[in-house]
Amino acid sequence: MRLHPLTSLAAAGSTAVITTAAASWPLSLAVIAAAVGLSAWCGTLRRLLPAAAAVLVPLCLSLLALHGLFFPEGLTVLASWGPARVTTEGLSFALQRAAQLSAAVLALLVFSVSVSVPDLVAALSAKGIQGRIAFVLASTLTLLPAAASRLERIRQAQEARGLVIRHGLLHRITAFRLQAVPLVSALVEEAGTRGAALEARGFGSTGPRTSYREVPDRSLERLLRILLLLAAVAAVAARLWQAGG
């Protein structure tokens, strides 16, 4: 049985909020394991891992560099280079925050790589959200794969015309600079084409709308979405109460 897109979104969002508010090592690791396992079970692991690596690797490295080297509350010094000090407390804090961030990002990415975008647009429109806004919200899920596919085609076309990408970071940066301009131009042109297509299909009209695509929304799932929202609000309230206390 396939879940309603808004139920999947509520589950992913509440999981990210609760994990962040709880700030618990076991919960963060459990969410990470559950996200990877669920993605493998759904057959989307090959799409999840590259996207997660692109987002999490630079963020986690920055957390380790910032808190691992410049943590003011650190007492147990493992190594020091001038003002930079590697402390046990700093590394522990950085790893804990990295686990929280990874859990939240993976929960949201599992939703983004598994949801049906047409069903999401239909579900948002059925809830009264304007068609154009629903399309913009849903199209963000396909922006990264579309840009990656377009960049690959640009690279193949440039290599066919004689571009040679040598090994080394400097050469790759230079090659990316040559590919970035046609990529941005193509995305802007595609945005204009999509805008014209949306206008032709009446996305800008204000009258009553009908949709050929119906997404069933069971009463049990509507109740589940309310419970998930309440759980996220309760987690944030408990965190704020704990911080205030």
Rank of each mutant, 00 (worst) to 15 (best):
C42D: 11
C42R: 15
C42M: 15
C42A: 15
C42T: 07
C42I: 09
G43H: 09
T44R: 14
L45Y: 05
L45Q: 05
L45P: 03
L45D: 08
L45F: 13
L45A: 14
L45T: 08
R46K: 13
R46T: 13
R46I: 06
R46G: 15
R47N: 14
R47P: 11
L48W: 08
L48V: 12
L48D: 07
L48I: 13
L48F: 11
L48Y: 10
L49W: 04
P50G: 14
P50D: 13
P50T: 11
A53K: 04
A54Q: 12
A54R: 14
V55C: 12
V55M: 15
V55R: 12
V55H: 07
L56C: 09
L56H: 06
L56K: 06
L56Q: 07
V57M: 10
V57Q: 05
P58I: 03
P58A: 03
L59I: 12
L59P: 00
L59V: 14
C60A: 11
C60I: 13
C60V: 14
L61G: 05
S62T: 15
S62H: 05
L64M: 10
L64T: 04
L64H: 02
L64E: 11
A65E: 01
L66K: 01
L66Y: 07
L66M: 10
H67G: 00
H67A: 00
G68K: 01
G68R: 00
L69F: 09
F70L: 08
F71L: 00
P72Q: 03
P72E: 05
E73K: 06
E73Y: 07
G74P: 05
G74D: 06
L75H: 09
L75S: 12
T76I: 09
T76H: 14
V77Y: 10
V77P: 04
V77T: 14
L78M: 14
L78S: 04
L78F: 12
L78H: 10
L78I: 14
A79K: 01
A79Y: 03
S80F: 01
S80G: 01
W81V: 13
W81C: 02
G82M: 10
G82R: 05
P83F: 01
A84I: 01
V86P: 00
V86M: 09
T87Y: 07
T88R: 12
E89I: 08
E89A: 04
E89G: 04
G90M: 08
G90R: 04
L91R: 02
L91S: 02
L91M: 06
